[in-house]
Design a protein around this nucleic acid. Structure first.
Length: 417
DNA sequence: TCTGGGGTCCTAGGACCC
DNA sequence: TCTGGGGTCCTAGGACCC
């Protein structure tokens, strides 16, 4: 049996832990650049605010309804997430961290099969007590059914919902619209609806070969899982990353090459740190840039991938390539909204081979990176930087309503006056 | 004024090989 | 009229997830 533990309105819940006044009040958290609504408290949902709504469309409404609005604070959410995840392994050693706010737990240990719900309630209660984060738990014979059980737990406000018996499974599946099944997105739902398949129960009863033809093996697996078979194993060890991306929309539109270069350098630094933390090297790097797709100004977007002769995780080395790429795809007379960098062809550092040329230089670079990483880790990312970085970052994204990093920065811990 | 960011997997089709 | 059979690798695009 599998349990899916999912934090309720996670980002909102994180904000509430440190601002108890927000309980029972409508709260929303915005995406980067204060763009769209990406988390809503129950009260905010009740006011009709939809997921993904651009904030500028509801800012006045938010004010009249006294909705608390936050910029996203990923430092806080990431730290709260690791606390929750670590505690989960205490209840079930075999867990898969599926996303920032979800984990699958293997309940097939010495637990009494008749007491799974009880077990779920205990986890829920302890997590709330230890982290302040409310969770919902769905239990089922595989991931897909655990997901559906979780949705029921949330929707019916049960906290924990168990779907171990087939009769209950069928009853719930009958009430589950097709689009709410994990893996059935907008397009597949449309296809299925057109064929008269509207509920998860109907999908469960669908002919396997037909499902395979219509929705490829992904769909075929979903049908199997709805029938109780487990096709998707728990991933206890996270598989190594295949690519690492960093990109941001700017707070302003800009045609200034220097802005783009500065932003790109910054994003590359983040990518580089992430790559080295995972002990990886890159064999290719892509730079992309794009104008604002919503504006009436002329549109342009382009990208360029450079294959490297030698795998590297030196930010200095990569930066030479990303800058060259940017020069090639940059066109003046456009107003840009976003640039980004993608590291690809990632492979473990141990697989690096000696270089025919300049091995000594590369090793110097490696030592430099190690020192930089240590300094950044200890004194913050802004303590040291490549080249000259203007303190005034004209392109920096908006984040006008960000809360403190209560759990990761001493200067920002909660003060009780 | 204003519309996020970071990923993975699958398939079809082309290119190429013997 | 008529054009095999079996295979690999790569890529673009689509779909999906949070």
């Amino acid at each position: 049996m599998i349990a899916l533990v999912d934090c309720n309105n996670f980002y909102v819940s994180c904000e509430r832990v440190f601002a108890p006044k927000l309980r029972n009040r409508p709260v929303v958290v915005l995406s980067n650049n204060d763009g769209c609504v990406i988390a809503r408290s129950e009260e905010a949902k009740a006011l009709g605010i939809k997921m993904g709504t651009p904030y500028f469309q509801i800012d006045e409404f938010a004010e009249t309804e006294k909705i608390a609005v936050f910029s996203s604070n990923y430092t806080l959410y990431g730290d709260m997430s690791s606390r929750v995840m670590e505690l989960l392994t205490y209840f079930a050693p075999e867990t898969e961290i599926y996303s920032i706010d979800e984990a699958f737990l293997n309940l097939d240990d010495d637990r009494d099969i008749g007491k799974l719900s009880e077990s779920g309630h205990l986890i829920k209660e302890k997590l709330k007590k230890w982290t302040g984060i409310p969770v919902s738990i769905g239990i089922g014979p595989n991931k897909t059914l655990a997901k559906i059980a979780n949705r029921r737990a949330k929707k019916a406000n049960l906290g924990v919902f168990e779907m171990t018996h087939e009769a209950i499974q069928c009853e719930v599946l009958d009430q589950t619209p097709i689009g709410d099944v994990w893996g059935i997105g907008y397009n597949s739902a449309k296809k299925l609806n057109a064929l008269g398949i509207k509920t998860a129960l109907q999908l469960k009863q669908m002919d396997r070969r037909w499902a395979r033809k219509l929705l490829s093996v992904v769909g075929a697996r979903i049908v199997e899982e709805l029938n109780g078979k487990a096709c998707l194993p728990l991933e206890l060890v996270p598989p190594p990353k295949k690519s690492i991306t960093c990109s941001r929309s700017f707070g302003i539109l800009t045609g200034d090459f220097e802005h783009l270069k500065e932003a790109l350098d910054n994003y590359l630094v983040k990518c580089g740190e992430k790559m080295r933390r995972q002990k990886l090297t890159a064999r290719a790097v892509t730079v992309f840039l794009t104008t604002n797709r919503f504006s009436k100004h002329p549109q342009y977007s382009n990208s360029l991938t450079i294959e490297l002769a030698n795998a590297t995780n030196s930010t200095r080395e990569l930066r030479d390539w990303t800058r060259k790429a940017l020069v090639q795809i940059y066109k003046k007379d456009f107003l840009y909204k976003k640039v980004g960098v993608i590291l690809q062809g990632l492979q473990p550092e141990q697989r690096e081979t000696f270089r025919l040329y300049n091995q000594a230089n590369y090793e110097k670079d490696k030592r430099l990176m190690q020192s930089l990483d240590k300094i950044s880790q200890r004194f913050g990312r802004n303590a040291i930087a490549f080249g000259v970085r203007k303190s005034e970052k004209a392109w920096q994204m908006r984040a006008e309503r960000k809360s403190n990093c209560y759990t990761t920065c001493l200067k920002e811990v909660l003060q009780i006056k």
